[in-house]
């Protein structure tokens, strides 16, 4: 059974945010409500300043806590591909999943605009749609949380379900450089200029993602939570380092 996963090489990532922009366009995100984001952290004070960045999509966890807490089965683990998806027709907007996700990747966009002007008032949505983007977007597929986010529900990265789910059967990797798989490759992977992202089948021993994880000692974020992300980070074996939230408080 295919289990899609992503590998992000932190030594290659330049923090350019091309992935964030591509994801926002691909998935018609409201400005600032980024399913895929590159988070920046700074530590210390001048002249000893350390700046780091950290690309962060949904981890599509193997044991997702968001699925466990959802009282309506709106959030679910798709056995075909291992995607964690949201059925917008079942979501009630209780936000339990947002509270339970250790990686902070979920969005309830019925809130004050993150970026002004509020594009929802510039391009008002029809029906339940939050807004009507002026550019084309994937076909609305509410059962898989794809398309323009409706009002009153939660959304998150789908691993570009609308592309990946149509990939040729048995594909080990989805690579933008391979004409056979280019169109099925997630938008963030496809645009990454230094090729810091890889996408493939974690259940296929021949996939490049598996080789990278093995050869470069891929690690998962917050592995102690037991969520078992399907996103791995390569960091020269040093661990996927994100400063703790206390690090900027001058504690030792």
């Amino acid at each position: 059974m295919t289990k899609w996963g992503m590998v992000i090489d932190l030594d290659k990532c330049t923090g350019c945010q091309a992935c964030t922009t591509a994801c926002s366009m691909e998935n018609t995100r409201l400005p600032g409500e980024n399913w895929q984001d590159v988070l920046f952290y700074s530590e210390g004070s001048y002249p000893n300043v350390n700046m780091r960045w950290f690309p962060r999509p949904c981890m599509h966890c193997e044991r997702p806590s968001c699925v466990d807490v959802c009282p309506t089965r709106a959030t679910y683990k798709d056995p075909n591909g291992g995607f964690v998806l949201i059925d917008w027709d079942r979501c009630i907007g209780c936000k339990a999943c947002m509270v339970a996700c250790p990686y902070g990747v979920r969005f309830y966009t019925d809130e004050r605009a993150v970026v002004e002007p509020d594009v929802r008032s510039v391009f008002p949505g029809e029906g339940k749609r939050q807004w009507s983007p002026p550019y084309s977007s994937p076909h609305d597929d509410p059962k898989h949380g794809v398309g323009v986010q409706p009002k009153g529900v939660v959304s998150k990265c789908t691993f570009c379900y609308h592309k990946v789910s149509k990939a040729p059967a048995g594909a080990a990797d989805l690579d933008e450089d391979d004409p056979a798989t280019k169109e099925y490759t997630p938008a963030c992977v496809r645009v990454c200029p230094p090729k810091a992202r890889y996408f493939g089948d974690l259940d296929n021993p021949k996939s490049k993602v598996n080789k990278l994880i093995a050869d470069k000692r891929g690690v998962r974020l917050l592995d102690h939570t037991g969520n078992k992300p399907q996103v791995y980070y390569l960091s020269g074996g040093a661990g996927a380092a994100v400063p703790s939230s206390r690090s900027s408080q001058g504690r030792s």
Binding site: V38, L39, V105, S245
Partner: peptide
């Protein structure tokens, strides 16, 4: 905040 980087305060 869980993993919001510099977009969100401590």
């Amino acid at each position: 905040p869980l993993f919001k980087g510099s977009w969100a305060p401590d």
